[in-house]
Design a protein around this nucleic acid. Structure first.
Length: 283
DNA sequence: AACCGAGTCAACCGCGGGTCC
DNA sequence: GGGACCCGCGGTTGACTCGGT
C-alpha cells in the first residue's frame, strides 16, 4: 500500500448520516469528477453538486477546491511587482485591523493630526476577496497567504526605527498625497531616504528597514490597538477637522509614541463601530 | 546524507449573513 | 418569527519544500 493511499485512508472520516467523508488533499480523480460536474451543472449548490457527483466531500470543500484551484482562469506563479503593489495598496485601504498595512497607515495618521477628512482607511475586517477582485486570476486565499507570509512575517521591522518611519512616509505618500504611487524607487519622493532606494520589491522596501532589528511586526500585533492611539488624536472627534490634504511639511517628529488609553470612543472605533467613523465611503 | 528551521500554500474550521419554508 | 440549510469569508492548521548546516 502506498503512502498516499495510507494517508487517504487516514484522512477519511465517518460522519453520521453522511457516510464516509474524505478530507485532505484532493486526488486527480476527485478533481476530474468535480470539473465535470461543474461543467454540467454550473457553480453553486455545492452540497447538492458534491452528492450528485458522488464525491465524498462536503460542499464547502468542493467550492474551495473549485475556486482556489480548478477554475479555468486561475493564474499561477509568483505575483508580479505590480500585483504586489496593488495588494499592499488595497490592503492598506481595506486590510484587517491588525494588519501591517493598516498599522503603517495608522501610525502614519498619528503623525499627521491635521489630516482628517481624507480617505483614511476604515479599520474594519479583512477584505481579501475584495482585494482579489482587483487581481484577475488571483484568489482571495492566495492574496491572504501572500499578506500573511510575505508581508507580515518578513516585515521584521523595528516599529520605532527611523527607517520604518521613512517607509511609513513613503506609504503615506502613496495613499494620501498628490504624489502618484511609485512603481520604482526612482519615482519615490526625494525625501525618502537613500537606504530605501534601489529596492525593487515593495515588501523588501519594508523588510530592509529592519536592519536586523529586535522588534518584529508580530510584536506590533500583540499591542492592543487603542494603546497605539496618539495623544493628539485621542478621540474620533479629532478626525473631523477641516483639513483635507497633506504635504511632507506636515511631518513632525513625535518625541515618543505616547499612549492614550483613556479614550473609550477610540476603543469603540478601533473595535469596529463603523458608525463612529467620520470618514467618507471607502468605495 | 541527515537533520532542522523557515517559508509556502492547499485545505479545514468557525462564524455570520442570506434564503427558504 | 424562527429554524434549517447554504454560501462565502477570514483565520488557522499542517503537510510539504527548500535551503542551510
Amino acid at each position: 500500500m502506498s503512502i498516499t493511499a495510507i494517508k487517504s485512508l487516514a484522512s477519511t472520516s465517518k460522519c453520521e448520516g453522511m457516510g464516509e467523508l474524505r478530507r485532505g488533499p484532493w486526488t486527480l480523480e476527485e478533481d476530474t469528477l468535480l470539473v465535470h460536474c461543474v461543467a454540467c451543472h454550473g457553480e453553486g449548490r455545492w452540497n447538492l453538486l458534491a452528492r450528485s457527483a458522488g464525491l465524498k466531500r462536503t460542499g464547502k470543500s468542493c467550492r474551495l477546491r473549485w475556486l482556489n484551484y480548478l477554475k479555468p482562469d486561475i493564474k499561477r506563479g509568483n505575483l508580479s511587482l505590480e500585483e504586489q503593489l496593488l495588494i499592499l495598496d488595497l490592503h492598506s485601504k481595506w486590510g484587517n485591523r491588525y494588519s501591517i498595512g493598516t498599522e503603517i497607515i495608522y501610525r502614519s495618521f498619528r503623525r499627521f493630526p491635521s489630516l482628517t477628512n481624507c480617505a483614511y482607511p476604515r479599520l474594519c475586517a479583512s477584505r481579501w476577496s475584495r482585494i482579489a477582485q482587483h487581481l484577475p486570476g488571483r484568489t482571495d486565499n492566495e492574496i491572504k497567504n501572500y499578506c500573511r507570509t510575505r508581508v507580515q512575517r518578513q516585515l521584521k521591522a523595528d516599529a520605532h526605527s527611523a527607517l520604518l518611519r521613512e517607509a511609513v512616509r513613503s506609504c503615506w505618500a502613496q495613499n494620501f498625497s498628490s504624489i502618484p504611487p511609485p512603481h520604482t524607487f526612482d519615482e519615490m519622493p526625494p525625501w525618502v531616504s537613500d537606504e530605501l532606494r534601489g529596492v525593487t520589491s515593495f515588501v523588501d522596501r519594508f523588510a530592509i528597514s529592519s536592519g536586523g532589528g529586535h522588534c518584529s511586526v508580530n510584536n506590533a500585533y500583540e499591542v492592543e490597538p487603542w494603546n497605539l492611539a496618539p495623544t493628539s488624536v485621542s478621540t474620533p472627534n479629532c478626525f473631523a477637522s477641516e483639513h483635507t490634504s497633506c504635504s511632507k511639511n506636515d511631518v513632525t517628529e513625535p518625541s515618543s509614541w505616547s499612549m492614550d488609553e483613556s479614550s473609550d470612543m477610540l476603543k469603540s472605533y478601533m473595535s469596529g463601530a463603523e458608525s463612529e467613523v467620520p470618514f467618507g465611503d471607502d468605495n
